[in-house]
């Protein structure tokens, strides 16, 4: 039926193209997520039959001080993590020179990006170890005693975020390096003619051309901050006494160690609701970009 095919290939082919991704993503990710939402309405230990509790888990959540601690920590993550884009830009500017050996230097700056977060967590735990960690050595060189960061309930989250910044800054640097590579020389030239230089040039000529990169860097950083789990798990396990927990970790802890999958699923649902804000913002940006392009 070559005729039929010719008439309809306009929609059959794209449907066939997108089907594998849709089916796989739908069956594994979407269905599992919906199932989690369903689980959040139950009391469930992960093994026995589920017991319907309606919104009970959510009601309990809003009375749970640990939930608010985790939420607050996620906010700290979100704010402090936003240092990654500017720091990444800074390093990108620093290494964006054509000097012999600079290519290798660039690659070495990327390395934290490819390390497993378990490795990053372990090494920063050493940095912070009271007594003989790198931080303690630096402090003692100045005759001071380093604070035990991972024991201090007010500082511990900052210490963990700081460690997580390491690979995140590398990620942002890569993005900005790519952006700097594609700057329009005409616009830079025009800026120079207008007498723009240094920071002035950066803010008025360069950054406007990098909006798209900045947008992506911020989006990826925000998601990273909200999804943070590995570093907390490796460095503090949420401690001391839950003061460095984040929503993703609390969810895991409740599900695995307390056998409360319903409650854990409720935490995840709230986390997803928060992320929805970013998702909507992100999509609306893309749609606007599409409209401009069309």
């Amino acid at each position: 039926m070559p005729n039929f095919w010719r008439q309809h290939r306009g929609w059959i082919a794209p449907t066939l193209f997108i089907m594998p991704a849709v089916v796989l993503f739908g069956v594994v990710i979407v269905a599992s997520s919906v199932q989690s939402l369903w689980i959040s309405l139950h009391d469930w230990d992960g093994m026995s039959p589920m017991h319907w509790v309606g919104l009970g888990n959510y009601q309990e959540l809003f009375r749970d001080p640990q939930f608010f601690t985790s939420l607050k920590n996620n906010c700290i993550w979100l704010v402090v993590f936003m240092l990654a884009p500017p720091l990444g830009l800074g390093i990108a500017l620093l290494v964006n020179q054509q000097i012999r050996g600079m290519r290798l230097v660039k690659s070495l700056f990327f390395i934290p990006l490819v390390l497993a977060s378990v490795a990053v967590g372990v090494v920063f735990t050493w940095v912070y170890t009271p007594g003989f960690g790198l931080l303690a050595l630096v402090f003692s060189a100045f005759g001071a005693t380093a604070p035990a960061l991972l024991s201090d309930e007010n500082l511990v989250t900052f210490a963990v975020v700081f460690a997580a910044l390491w690979p995140q800054v590398a990620f942002c640097m890569v993005l900005y390096l790519a952006g700097l590579n594609s700057l329009s020389d005409d616009l830079i030239g025009a800026g120079q003619v207008d007498g723009a230089r240094g920071l002035n040039m950066l803010f008025h000529v360069v950054l406007p051309q990098l909006t798209q990169v900045t947008f992506i860097a911020i989006a990826i950083t925000a998601i990273g901050a909200l999804r943070s789990f590995d570093m907390v798990s490796v460095m503090t396990q949420g401690g001391p006494f839950g003061s460095s927990s984040v929503l993703a970790y609390q969810m895991y802890e409740q599900s695995i160690f307390s056998y409360r999958f319903g409650y854990g699923a409720a935490i995840a649902s709230v986390l997803f609701a928060i992320m929805l804000v970013f998702i909507v913002w992100y999509l609306s940006r893309i749609m606007r970009a599409d409209d401009r392009g069309a």
Partner: peptide, 13 residues
């Protein structure tokens, strides 16, 4: 186990 998790955190605090 659920009680234990809460207890461990409480004792540490």
């Amino acid at each position: 186990p659920d009680m234990a998790q809460a207890g461990l955190n409480g004792f540490q605090e």
